[in-house]
Simulated scan of single mutants.
Amino acid sequence: MATPVAPQPSFPAKVTRFYHDVTAEMKRVTWPDRAQLQDATIKIIVFVLALGAVIALLDLALQFVLVQLPALLLGR
């Protein structure tokens, strides 16, 4: 004997349930205060600038090694 299959909720019911779940979850979120937000922003900006400097140095070093050094060695 086959077991009965539970009916699937309709699309509007799914959307409504999703909305209620999101609303309930957003009430549980702890948002950072202004000082935490400023601290995190400064750290991110410093990190991005440092990473950009590292990439620029690597670019210059690789440009010298792969472009200028062979030209100097081969006399071009």
Rank of each mutant, 00 (worst) to 15 (best):
W31Q: 02
L60D: 08
A6T: 15
V67P: 03
A13V: 10
T41P: 00
Q36P: 00
K14T: 08
D39M: 11
V15I: 14
Q36H: 02
M1N: 08
V67A: 06
H20V: 03
G52W: 01
S10F: 00
A6R: 13
K27A: 09
F18N: 10
G52K: 03
L66I: 09
L37F: 08
G52L: 02
T23C: 10
Q38W: 06
A56W: 00
L60A: 11
A40I: 05
V5H: 12
Y19C: 08
V5Q: 15
D21I: 08
P9N: 00
M26S: 07
V54L: 08
L57V: 15
A2E: 14
A56K: 00
V15T: 11
A35Y: 02
V48A: 05
A56V: 02
R17Q: 11
A53C: 07
P7T: 12
Y19E: 13
L74D: 10
P70M: 01
A13P: 06
V67K: 09
F47T: 03
L51P: 00
M26R: 10
A35K: 04
A56T: 02
A56I: 01
H20S: 03
V29W: 00
M1P: 07
S10W: 01
T3L: 13
R17H: 13
V65W: 10
G52Y: 02
T3N: 12
Q68G: 06
Q38A: 15
I44Y: 14
A61G: 12
T16V: 09
R28P: 04
L51V: 03
F11Y: 14
P4K: 15
Q8S: 10
V5F: 15
L49K: 09
T16S: 14
Q38T: 11
A50G: 09
T41C: 02
L62I: 08
A6V: 15
A6F: 08
L49Q: 07
M26N: 13
L69K: 00
L72A: 14
